[in-house]
Design a protein around this nucleic acid. Structure first.
Lengths: 152, 152
DNA sequence: TTCAAATAGTTTAAGTTTGAAATACTCCAT
DNA sequence: ATGGAGTATTTCAAACTTAAACTATTTGAA
């Protein structure tokens, strides 16, 4: 008995779509994760460096929201990055609850060298798709992602 | 300075595409995860039930390959499902290293009720995209995923 | 036949993430 | 000005995953 017959055409379409999406996401994460580890960083650590490198100092809360990760998790990631001297916490003077996180000079330099390589790698991993296809995919994913954000 | 200028057009396209993909995947996982938890199952447990429900008995190795997860992890997931009486391990008589895992009657019934709801939910979560768009997205993801599989 | 290599699965330690409780601080209505 | 509600971050225990070491079994070449 085919899935189509059991759950209907709409569900079948959606289910297979999400399976492919999850697989692509996981596999991509594994591949780039291996690269990142070779620079002595974990994936989430790299995520934070990238964010700070591109956006400048951010609060712990902002980092968590952007990475879709809880605050407790950000704390741990930052503890480890701080031990390595890649970032520093700076307590805000306006609102003393808030902590701004920023790259140290060492973090700056780590960011620059690792991110360039990462960008090249990502471009290479995506090269099966033409530029047009990548734009198409981005557009569809954006539509899907935005709608998901508003759900439950 | 825009990312485009720093890393080139190709990298920019690919990077934003992957960010959107990861976000969609994570958010989708969170939403469906909440549903699944309400049936007393974790996401990976549900994944195994679904697989066995649709494909019949599988070996531990097969399950790991399909879920993109290590064997050690499958062992733990199965231990917990077995405690709940949802699945059973059956040592193969042809090759005594091999274990086949199959649903118990209880597992069958859990699978049937939970999966139907899951399918409806997934269809609903995907309904921002038309059927045609979902097919387009699937096609692009498949192309991307297949190419990724062969890398490094 | 026999033993080394390969394969299937489990165990273990270490790392990551989550959610809830705790702490510290700010804001606002009284 | 003051107390309660709300916000930012950390701490902690529990759950999941991985990688590597280990056990049990099979395969195949000498």
């Amino acid at each position: 008995m085919r899935t189509t017959e059991q759950y209907g055409r709409k569900a079948e379409l959606a289910l297979t779509m999400w399976v492919k999406l999850a697989r692509a996401s996981t596999t991509f994460g594994r591949l780039t994760g291996k690269d990142i580890e070779q620079h002595g960083l974990t994936q989430p650590q790299f995520g934070v460096l990238e964010m700070l490198g591109h956006l400048g100092p951010l609060t712990i809360g902002d980092i968590g929201k952007r990475m879709l990760v809880t605050g407790g998790c950000v704390t741990v990631i930052l503890d480890n990055l701080e031990k390595e001297g890649q970032v520093e916490r700076i307590r805000s003077s306006e609102d003393r609850r808030v902590i701004k996180v920023q790259l140290t000079p060492k973090g700056e330099s780590t960011f620059k060298t690792t991110f360039r390589k990462h960008a090249e790698r990502v471009a290479e991993l995506s090269s099966v798709l033409s530029e047009e296809e990548q734009i198409q995919l981005s557009t569809l994913l954006k539509k899907l992602g935005l709608s998901l954000r508003d759900k439950q």
